[in-house]
Design a protein around this nucleic acid. Structure first.
Lengths: 107, 107
DNA sequence: ATTTTGCGAAACCGATTGGTTGCATGTATA
DNA sequence: TATACATGCAACCAATCGGTTTCGCAAAAT
């Protein structure tokens, strides 16, 4: 059972759920009303998102409110940072090449 | 055939390929050497990444160099922006509540 | 006390996934 | 020209995925 945040956000319904919940916590039934899928199907998605620690639950009577744990989203940002850094290095190298070219022309 | 960038980066091997290629373009064989998977398996991943426009190909003789199209990665960042904005709004609302609380105490 | 409501869990099903094997094709090399 | 190499593509397979149906269990409502 592979269960990481990248696999979690691969599904478009799950991404929509995250956006929906980001505004304020919601119950499974309330969430399901926003989609064509059944309540059970949404419940499955909620379980997967919870297993990835993207969601927290707040029980109120027989209702369960799911809320987004926004901090977990940072993990995606951290991964993207790798590419930001690599790109920075690339531009620096490009700068050096351009600088050398200018210097050579002056000779 | 669902083929978007989020589904593309869901697979850990594909994510590793992206990081590998980000540094400099590579051929399928060279990439495959970094993994336990077969050359054909890596080729399949490259095809999926290409279909998502995450990769560009440069043919050199009988070799094909795959390079990362870094701009496409921005799409993930754009999606993350939604949450950044929602969080900003939340903090603003929190500020307003705190402000009101202070004002009420003064009364 | 009985019924309704909100929910999770399990069983099942077709579609998709990631992997392998076996080709076909085009390019270097002998 | 014959051979070795780099690669893509199609066929196949077990595992996983997303969905539905059915059930059981509590908490509310009647």
């Amino acid at each position: 059972m592979r269960r990481d945040i990248f696999q979690a956000i691969a599904d478009p319904t799950r991404r929509a759920i995250l956006v929906l919940i980001a505004v304020h916590a919601m119950t499974p039934n309330a969430i399901a009303e926003h989609f064509d899928s059944s309540r059970q199907s949404i419940s499955k998605h909620l379980r997967i998102l919870s297993e990835c620690e993207l969601l927290a639950q707040k029980q109120e009577g027989r209702e369960i409110f799911y809320e987004l744990k926004i901090d977990k989203m940072k993990e995606i940002d951290i991964w993207l940072d790798k590419f930001r850094k690599i790109m920075e290095e690339r531009f620096q190298q490009l700068d050096e090449i351009l600088l050398l070219t200018i210097k050579n022309k002056k000779k």
